[in-house]
Structure formats: C-alpha cells, structure tokens
Design a protein around this nucleic acid. Sequence first.
DNA 1: GACAGCCCTGAGAGCGCTTCCATCGGGCTC
DNA 2: GAGCCCGATGGAAGCGCTCTCAGGGCTGTC
Lengths: 347, 347
Amino acid sequence: MPEQPRGSRPTLEAVAARAGVSRATASRVVNGGDGVRKPLVDKVLQAVDELGYIPNHAARTLVTRRTGAVAVVIAEPETRFFSDPFFSQQIRGISKELTAHDTQLVLLLVEGPGDFDRIARYLAGGHVDGALAFSLHTDDPVPAITRRAGIPAVYGGRPSWTADPGDQAVPYVDADNRGGARLAVRYLRDLGRTRIAHIAGPADQTSAMDRLDGYRDVLLDGDPTLVADGAFTVESGARAMTELLERHPDLDAVFAANDLMASGALRVLRERGIAVPEQVALVGFDDMDSVATETDPPLTTVGQEIEGMGRLMARLLLRALDRERTGSGEVPESVITPTTLVRRASA
Amino acid sequence: MPEQPRGSRPTLEAVAARAGVSRATASRVVNGGDGVRKPLVDKVLQAVDELGYIPNHAARTLVTRRTGAVAVVIAEPETRFFSDPFFSQQIRGISKELTAHDTQLVLLLVEGPGDFDRIARYLAGGHVDGALAFSLHTDDPVPAITRRAGIPAVYGGRPSWTADPGDQAVPYVDADNRGGARLAVRYLRDLGRTRIAHIAGPADQTSAMDRLDGYRDVLLDGDPTLVADGAFTVESGARAMTELLERHPDLDAVFAANDLMASGALRVLRERGIAVPEQVALVGFDDMDSVATETDPPLTTVGQEIEGMGRLMARLLLRALDRERTGSGEVPESVITPTTLVRRASA
DNA sequence: GACAGCCCTGAGAGCGCTTCCATCGGGCTC
DNA sequence: GAGCCCGATGGAAGCGCTCTCAGGGCTGTC
C-alpha cells in the first residue's frame, strides 16, 4: 500500500481512469462487483491495488445514508463501569460481532445527567445507524432519545419499563437471572440445607429483583427475614451477612445475588469462625473471574455467558439494521440467555 | 425538537428558505455566526429551532475533510483490558476531554494479531482524524499504521521503541514510573529498612523496567538477588514473595512493581505469620482502588493520576489536530505525569 | 456630491460517491 | 438474416454541506 500524503488520496475517479472504465463500473466493483464482467473486475481491482485506493467514507455515507457505525451508550455512573468486568466483557463481545460485520463501535460515555442532550444530538445527527445501550433506570432518557432519533436500539439487561405499554417492544438481551437464582437455591436445598438466606441486590436493578424472585420461587413460604438487602458491593455483602447472622444464628446456607456480596459475606463468616461450606453453604452469582476463583474457598456461583450476551446484542441490532435496509427479515426479539451453576468449594 | 421520521430530516436548504436567507448564510450561522448580522442570525437560529435542524455530518465531513472523531486503539490482549481498571479509567479521562471538545471516540479493539489490517484500513479510510493507542510492544504495527495513514497519534505509556531514530517523536503520556519507584524505595529506606527487596514486572513493559530502574537508583549497590520477577498478577506476586523469602528470610521490606503483586506478596507474608508492616514493610504501585484499600492492612503504594493521563492524551491529540488544521500552534510533546506516595498501613 | 473601501450576503462550484436510466452490443429465436 | 431481449456499461444527477468569489449596500472622506 503506497503511503498517502494525507488529503490527496486517490478517488474512485482515478481508479476508473486507470482501469479504463467509468466511475460507475469502478464503484460497482468496489462494492462487490455484481454484474460486472470478470476481466473488468480484475482491471479495476488491480487499479485499486496499485493506487492504494480506499473509499471515502463520508462520501459514501452521504449518498447511502448509512454510516456503518453503531453507538454503545453507557449511562452507568463511572463507579460501576470501572469496577465491573461485566461491561468490558460485553463490550468485547459486541466489538467482535460488529467487527465481523464491518461495523464500527462508537463509545458514548454519559458524563452525568446533563449530558443526555449531547447524546441525543449525536444519535440524531446521523453519525451512527443504531445504538446499543446499557443499564437503564426507570427514568432513563435513552429509549426516548433513540426513538426520537429514529434509529434502532437494543438494550443490555431487561429495562424496568419493559411493561410500559407506551413503548413498543425494544429488544433486549438479558441473562436468565430468575432461572439462575432458582438453580442456586434448589442446589442448596438439595444439599439438605433448610435455612437458606438471601442477600439481595439493589431494588432498582431488574437483575437483582429477578434473582430475588428466583429465590422466592423455590422457597415459596420462606421467612422474609431471611432476606437482607445489599448493594452489589463487597462491603454491603458483609453488612448484610452480619445482619442475617444476628437475626438467624442458625442459618445453614446463603445465596448472594452477586459474587462481590458473596465475598463480603464470606469474610464475615470466616471472621466468626463459621466453616464454609460445612456450617454455612454459600452461593454467589456472576462467576466473576477475579472474585469467584480468588476467594477461599472458591465460590460456587451462577455463571452466565457475558461475552455471548454482548455478541447477541450486536447481532440483534445488526438484524434490525438489515431489516431497515432491505425492508424485510425477522423482527429482532429479546433474548434471555441461559445461566448455569458453577460448582466450586463454597457449597 | 420535533420528531423526525428518519431519512427526511430538514436540510440547511430548508432552514435557509424558512429564514429567508441563502444557504451560505445559514451555514455561517450554524457554524458560529461570524460575520453575519444579528437579526439574520436570530432568524436562522429560530428556523433551526423550529425545524429541529441537525447538520448532516457526512456532508460536512465530505467538504471539510474532518470527521470530528478520533480512534482509541487497544491492542492489549483481552486479559489485561478486562481486569485492568487502568484502561477504563484512562478511557474515561479521554472521553471527558474529547466530549468537551465535541469530538467522538471510536473504540478499536484489536481482535488478535491478524486484525491489524482492518485497523490500518480503518485509520486510513478517513473515518477518524487521529488516534490514541495503548500498550505498544516492540513490534507493534500501530505506529507504522498511523504514520502511513497520515494521521496524528498519541500513545499511552512510553513505547519501548522511543529510542528508535527511524520514528519521529510520537508524543506519549506516561507516569513517572522511575520517580515513583524512587519515592517508594527511599521511603522504605528512611523507615530504617535495610534489606529492601523488589518484585519486578515483566521485562517487555517499559513501566515495569522504569520501576526497576527507580529501585536501583536508590539502592545503587543493592544485592541483585533481592529482585524477583513477577508478571503484574496476584499469583506471580505470591510466587515471587515465596522465592524472595527463601533467598532472604531476613528481608525487612518489599517494593512490588504493582498493587496486584503486592497483594499476592501480602497473602504469602500473612500465611507465614510475618507481620506487616512490623517485620516486613510493603509498598505497591498504582494505587488501584479495588486492591490497595481492600487488603489487610491497606497498601502503602505509589499513586498516579490515571484519569488525568487519559485527559492529557486526548489533549495532546487535539492539539496536534489543531495544529494540522491551522498550520500553527505548539508541537505536542510527550508528558510525564507525577506520581505520589500514598501512605496507608502496610509500610 | 462622488468615490473609495468595507462589510454582508448570495450564487455557485465542488467534495467523492452511488445509482437511475439510457445505451450499446451480443446471443437467440423464428 | 432480421428482430428482440437481456445483461453489461457509461453518463449524469444529486446526496447536504462549506467556502470562494463577486456583487451590493452602506459609511466615511475629500
């Protein structure tokens, strides 16, 4: 590839001239070559090669009205985006899928609540063909923004407003939190544990609520005081565990709504000299590498296909874009991805 | 803002018509309004408002040859990108700075060594005005790519090929690793410790080597067997500590090249019943939230302005872009950001 | 009162590409 | 052998914008 002094790159015109064809034909070849006879295709390709031609993206977008890029909107306050491998892993999955379809990823980090204007302008400005968004809270403006901008969107995690009839179904990808929780609690029950407590996550996150629901599904007439509230952090897990032990010194199992809280709980149990899993069996959720395998004992937990979820999100969006372009194809529907019990030593 | 049925957004033409001015004047107003008389400016702005006009980015890029976007290239194998809050925090800083200058962030994750072609095509394709890149190994093709693409770039972390005379200076932003290491080791020495060991990072990362150099700066005629090799991971830190204790059961201080290794070392020390900091004082590097404050005792470590480094990278790149556009302005130069000793309980 | 000069404004070219439509040529059919 | 149809090709329009350039109105000066 010849080095190009920026700003003077060869145009399609030049390629066409060199190949001795019209710009139209050159364009056809560059875009797949359908309906162009082989010898001409070869000539054009050779010219492309010799000249080091690279299509001008802006010109193409101007006429096709497609940018070949999608936005990933992250509205999460920084704390979570930083510490949570969840996001980065999903992004990796998204990136892989998009890359495989020649689509670019534009990262939009929301810098505080006042920043949504900027996001709205950007999404409506024709910079991207669609959007992937994470972590919507009840009053999250992102759905309204994408609707107004008229671009397809796919969400990561079940939005809490799903039930809102005002919104047409916005497809989302979420793990089977409820099913995973059931798996965990049934496992503890099958272990013969009878006083199974739960450390729940924050009430404004659907994943936390779904996990709580799953817990309740299995323990239909469970004692409500066996449930303590946490905030998905190590510290909150420790606090919740302390609380639970005060209320129920005799509990014999704990299902924590995520691994971080489980590790906090584990610390408290260890400090009190309570043997895990002998006296209290402990199950987490997430199968977070850096936590679940590092604790002592390693956590039994509920695993999910995080990267796969990212891929899936991207795939759904690409499908929606395709539908928009061709006017046909399947309507993307939300997907719940399976969760599995990962047995380690803590239960 | 009126809802726009995608694809039929108002154009500048429409705005001009509604305001009763020419397209040229409308354009001038939209781009700042210099040299347009107040009443016309107002009329145009009103039309913009009423119509919900948003400039078409592709059209603008086509003529200005500027995209208003920069790429962030992450060539790190996924393991590190995931676990390392370093990256996400720098990205946050980059995002903030770019946002403040109306510039978008396109994330380019390199999916394996064969993927550089795609990156090269992308960077050369006029999709972005410049690039920020992380973590260059000696044979990293990214510098060559950006040079060939003719776009300015700024690197995060001192590239190992800095000394290569073939490359014109590519500006980079790096923490003062060497100075930080000196700070740590001097601190230990001033504490009265005489047998100060070092757990070093991998030799192919300049940060690790710089920290080692800083250690040596202070301990000029130090015993080389007081240095053990690690790989910036918890496990490797534990291994290195074990090794050091075997070689030097009487050591009274350890400076680990990062917090993860320090936490591994701490685990080993605790297992052996060695009191920290009483018997062995321990200092880490990075001041990584999720580690340094969570250990018991919390780590004394060397802190750096991670988000600030991200901002700085973005700022340098924006400056380079500005220079390119205006033909003047300061030449961006590499910056070494200061490090500070953060005293906690481990030393 | 006339003219120079300045500031605003508008006309128009053109950025590089895709795509509609007309054209052309070759192979078939009768 | 003439007419037809179809597939391949080229001409040209136009996507929405910026920016140069020329012109028009106004002020200020002599």
